[in-house]
């Protein structure tokens, strides 16, 4: 593209007034904003920062934090191991091993479920593509932002851990679609009951 290309649009910078060119009024206007915020924090309650960790920050509802694997009404993992999330994932951090669902009463109406479901939270870029790709709303990104661990291995979340994130967050953040489990059980029980 050369300088005379017809698609190029020429912009003329706006003319500066005398006040603009002196700078001083602009500096004073900027300082006024700062002063207003300082006054708000000291005399009012308008601080944007929080006293973490004493105060917990509540992220916006569409914040993209740690993943969870949702459960259905019978406490089974909702995921059907279609691997669409791992197909969509740009960071290649989801690893799923699918298997045929057992022909038991609990699983009789299901065809396939994940024998193993692992997300490498360190590799994840929290883009939310997995959530968008999932046809059964099984994977969701929660508002948990304080993701910490003592080793790399701890940051590789397996199915049990991802299901326990669901138990941890289901009250604060109900599933966006479908209903949360009807059985109010302790998270450990739910984790043990599910596959």
């Amino acid at each position: 593209m050369n300088a005379n290309h017809p698609d190029l649009k020429r912009m003329t910078p706006p003319k500066l007034s005398l006040g603009d060119r002196l700078y001083v009024p602009q500096v004073i206007a900027g300082l006024a904003v700062t002063a207003r915020h300082m006054a708000g924090v000291v005399f009012g309650d308008s601080a944007i920062t929080v006293q973490y960790p004493e105060d917990q920050h509540i992220p916006s509802p569409n914040y993209r934090g740690v993943h969870r694997l949702n459960k259905d009404e019978s406490g089974r993992v909702k995921c059907v191991a279609c691997m669409l999330c791992s197909t969509a994932c740009p960071a290649h951090c989801i690893d799923i091993v699918g298997t045929t669902a057992p022909e038991t009463e609990l699983w009789g109406d299901r065809e396939k479920y994940p024998a193993s479901f692992v997300i490498d939270e360190l590799r994840c870029i929290f883009c939310g593509m997995c959530e968008e790709a999932c046809p059964v709303e099984a994977i969701e990104l929660t508002g948990l932002y304080d993701l910490t661990g003592l080793s790399r291995e701890q940051m590789i979340f397996d199915k049990t851990k991802l299901l326990s994130v669901f138990d941890l967050t289901k009250d604060a953040e109900p599933m966006r679609y479908g209903s949360p489990p009807s059985r109010p059980t302790s998270s450990t029980e739910l984790v043990r009951d599910s596959i």
Partner: peptide, 9 residues
């Protein structure tokens, strides 16, 4: 082959 792979992989 049942439920082991997705063909696009």
């Amino acid at each position: 082959f049942l439920h082991t792979q997705r063909v696009w992989f």
